[in-house]
Design a protein around this nucleic acid. Sequence first.
DNA 1: TCGCTCGCTGGA
DNA 2: CCAGCGAGCGAT
Length: 805
Amino acid sequence: MRFASVIVDVKAMQTDRAFDYLIPEKWTGFIKPGMRVIVPFGPRKVQGFVIGIKNESEFDRVKPIAEVMDITPALTKELLDIGHWLTQTTLCFKISAFQAMLPAAMKARYEKEIVLVSDEYRPNLHPKVLPWFQSRRSVYWKDIEKSDSVKEFQMEIERGVLEVIYQVKQKNKKKTQKYITSNAEIAELKKESESGSAQAAKQKLILDYFINNSGISVPLQELLLHLNITDSPVKTLIKKKLLREENVEIYRDPYEDRTFKKTEPLALTAEQQTAISPILNSVEQNRHDVFLMYGVTGSGKTEVYLQSIESVLNQGKEAIVLVPEISLTPQMVNRFKGRFGSLVAVLHSGLSVGEKYDEWRKIHRGEVKLVVGARSAVFAPFTNLGMIIIDEEHEGSYKQEENPRYHARDVAIYRAKFHQCPVVLGSATPSLESFARAGKEVYQLISLKERVNQRPLPQVEVIDMRDELRSGNRTMFSSSLLEKLQDRIAKKEQSVLFLNKRGYSSFVMCRDCGCVTGCPHCEISLTYHKHGSQLKCHYCGHEEPMPKVCSECSSEHIRFFGTGTQRVEEELAKVLPEARIIRMDVDTTGRKGSHEKLLTQFGNKEADILLGTQMIAKGLDFPDVTLVGVLTADTMLHLPDFRSSEKTFQLLTQVSGRAGRHELPGEVVIQSYSPEHYSIQLASHHDYDSFYQQEMLTRKQHAYPPFYYLALVTVSHPDLLKAVSVTEKIAKHLNQRLSDTVKILGPVASPIPRINDRYRYQCMIKYKREENLHASLKMIIERYQQDMNKNQLSISIDLNPNTMM
DNA sequence: TCGCTCGCTGGA
DNA sequence: CCAGCGAGCGAT
């Protein structure tokens, strides 16, 4: 007798452990750890992951596994181990960790089906139930649920006439295509072709096709197109057993109708050469090293990645490249596809669930050797990894903001240790954590200080918008920026205008009483969307029409504040009527592929100005862009977040890097209301090193990373007092259990104190080394488990949070 | 006394 | 997470 330990797909504390199941005789030896199975769990059936096989079980009533969902394990041994490690380091459920490592398509869908036990019962079904079973034997419960016959169904189920079947379904479908082949000897086909009646002209056509192309297997669609016929004659021939159809599985290829120009390795500059050699060394000697490649924008980091990968592939190993959000940088995909062609799989959020699944399977089957993708691609199921590259290592999107709250950088290093291979972290503005580690020689620092084409970094002008206002300029464009924009249009060069994320939409304020329209469910102001003249809450989705008068004082003097891309576009059209503008933001890039389309348009010089938010900050490389304008550099600076200076510096540096990458020199204009701030000043001088020094001082002073680790406990509850009191208890508990070197701050209200009618309180833990921390936090979750189930309480724990929000 | 809602609990 | 069950309460 063999048993499988299974982690079931039920998110609860009590089920966050393995359950034993009997492996039926027919599957012994076949079922392996890492496979997905369907098991009976209580009265229903659920999906689960086999994590181990054993010869006995301590339980006496062990049920057998009902179904196997994989032919080869979905999770490798290594990934199973990573799952366990994730549950410990991020305090999540095991099932969440496993699911996070697989494409969404492999998550189970549960459906309840109501089946008529026997056709004999049909005549005497309850009249309200009968119509559902007129022509079929089963109905989905989710369809019945909405109807008014729920009760009658229940009665029939109790009577034993109807039966409930719990279905576990795969979300995805493997995409298949119908292929047609001849199913008979050519002689037979000929005979049929000649004997065919005059009416069967089309059949004759098809038969002749298969006679002339003997043995061919052709996609049905192609056949129909080629012979200009419908499928009816084909069907007839299949019925006559002269042809045969078969379903062949095909991959959805998101890059199907695209050709990638094959590129050859470029000659490396002396500096790149020096940079790449320790990496190649490490690859050759199968050593686990972490490199921090600190290279200014335009210094040719990507070419170093490409050539490092080449050496890994030559060794017969695989590589993973992480990029912040790949759909945003089609140019990046092109470079990898161009160099490595069909050896590349691409995984990013712009793909459909099915497309992601297909890309994942290519990796799983070993059909590709290189993955380029966003955060979750770090879990690519390779078995012989030779390198992991994380581009723009400082990016916040590498941290998952929901369970499991992992950081891709940590996972990458963990995997690389296992595979004894290097990790390369690349950035023009490394995170303080990473740069500090490089300083302590935990990481090896590699510097690229020159741009490949010897172009100087662009000139940056910082403009004090308060002065502009004083001198009577009330528009959002400083006179200098406007002048330069006009100049570029005259010279037929291009400009990029950048607006910070938070400034993307505007809030509404009454000019008489100063009250700002807020969300009724959240402690946050509503943002104005021109489309439909609606006010929206970005946190809970609440929407309301734009008010005509102030709700407080009935004044009609209400107007928008802050600047959105839509408004900038309008204003721009007023001051520069001749400019052709492309706007890129959530509204214009919502649909699939629209992002790329807009960028291609800009690349083809169909516009003079590209106006956008965050999403245009990264990786764009257009030769004719010679001016970059940042409209409001400080929107992000004053957020209640210890990383706000760092983020501002990174963003400004990043954006500035978009200008003058090729022959034409570039210029940058940064508009700000606090131009004296060090992150703006130092970004304007391209001075990362001074910024690092300065920011480290601040972090040390306030005991923030990288000097301390953080853990953030956020408690939320509809009742303010409950939220406060629970947070207080937690803080007290932690104070008792943890050592005195730990600093516990709080309880304090979260930066957004209420979301969706739930009050949020938090408690921050700053620590250096704390053996007890994980255990203590786990105790808290267990202690409040009941409250969380029944009393709307929720506690989230974020180890190494990226932001405080 | 029936029937429904609520909260609790087990799940291998 | 969720089906199934028992407790408890209001309607008949």
